[in-house]
Design a protein around this nucleic acid. Structure first.
Lengths: 237, 237
DNA sequence: ACACTATAAGTTGTCAGACAATTAACTCAG
DNA sequence: CTGAGTTAATTGTCTGACAACTTATAGTGT
């Protein structure tokens, strides 16, 4: 029972944020601290935990704002589909930004994940997916250079590696995806325009072709609330 | 480029935490602030983001410690199995604490998820799963009272609702699970002995019987790093 | 010698006040 | 009407201090 002021403050703030309409500004820090009976330092400490959850956004000189969500993208995990396909299916419009294509050599981790040797030539594709203009996902795909080269993606690449390979005629079989949760690293935070440490849903997966070779090692970072991933689990072993 | 001191501080702290062995204490806040060239207030602000990710743990009067992970529990999402079954399969020992069994009436959300009417009698089972003595998951199962009554679970309940129903002879078919990430609420934070807002992996799922009736609405909260959930996704639609 | 208590030092939690950096609105000359 | 400068408001950071808590140490009584 030690954290009384802080915990009580979190509860009060949570209620205030819930009651405040999305996009609206909260009272200034000095005023809020006075209203809630705590110092501004403690208030800021608590407010950081809500910023981490993506519930509020602070802007120096402007204020602290409650963030609102757009409609969530819904998809089952049994079938692998691109975010573009998912959005089209739901009649939503998404866009791609910060597209970066970069060749690199396999380090120990990538070599193991892709079934190659250390130093093998790879191509790394990074991009930010936006819904309603706001960043909602950051995707990093890494492929062997014999699967995809820089000049291959110069044309007809619209943001989805999966769609590109399928339209090219590649035969792809399955993807093995791992799901986790984590705090944003510096790189991911910058891309998604959030703070380092903010909570994210994370997939890392291997895409296999007909010969069970790994053709793509993919890292996906999703801002919670914008996606509903579900899966049907069979009972019994 | 506004958050320079804070962002640089996060990078420095991240490196320090990575270099520090698990369980070891970090230098005191005044000393660290002096070493890193920031005020203690800013240092604390940054340190909270790492506490939120579960990377460090602060104890008043004692210090700030780097937390270490135990072996992760590995499981596929295609098959629904209890954490107990999962642990036994991997030769690990887990325990159950804070077991709470409580009857309640269905509110709007629960009624919809369970396919019942508002006010219907329910049974809510909450418990904390521990590995190596440390909390790693918080589970909340809610079942209709015609499926499970209080006195049913008085005996032979070892922590898993799924195992209990199966051993009793119930015919269960599938579970529809949704995966997400979120910050801990006050209730979950208390159960898992973490801070409100700390990042968690979250499943919420419906368990169906042979008649496609919902027999269990389940909420699961996992501390990241202790579990590896994976799923094989089929390409194409 | 042992168990228990009181003390002291060290650490995190909170507070108060101040200034810097940034933003947004306003004023006013052209 | 436009645009630059000014001003007020807000968050970011710093400094210093004290409170609350933990741990180790020294001391005391039996």
């Amino acid at each position: 029972m030690s954290n009384f002021p802080f915990q009580r403050l979190q509860a009060d703030l949570s209620g205030l944020i819930d009651r405040t309409p999305a996009g609206q500004r909260l009272p200034s820090e000095p005023e809020l601290a006075k209203q809630l009976g705590v110092s501004r330092a403690t208030l800021r400490d608590a407010m950081r935990t809500f910023e981490t959850q993506g519930l509020v956004r602070r802007r120096q000189g402007s204020g602290t704002f409650v963030v609102g969500k757009v409609q969530a993208l819904d998809s089952g995990l049994e079938v692998l589909e691109s975010l573009e396909t998912m959005a089209k299916r739901l009649g939503l419009v998404i866009s791609v930004s910060h597209l970066s294509v970069e060749p690199l050599a396999a380090d120990e981790t990538l070599a193991e994940k892709l079934g190659l040797e250390v130093g093998a030539g790879l191509l790394c594709i990074r991009r930010v997916i936006r819904a309603d203009g706001r960043p909602v996902a950051y995707l990093v795909d890494t492929l062997p250079e014999n699967v995809l080269r820089v000049d291959d993606v110069a044309t007809d690449f619209h943001g989805s590696v999966l769609d590109f390979l399928l339209e090219r005629g590649d035969i792809l079989k399955t993807s093995r995806a791992n799901v986790s949760a984590l705090g944003a690293t510096a790189e991911v935070a910058k891309a998604l325009e959030i703070q380092r440490g903010d909570v994210l849903l994370h997939f890392y997966s291997q895409l296999f072709d007909e010969n069970a070779k790994v053709v793509d090692y993919s890292l996906s970072y999703f801002i919670p609330g914008y996606f509903h991933f579900h899966v049907v689990r069979r009972v019994g072993g």
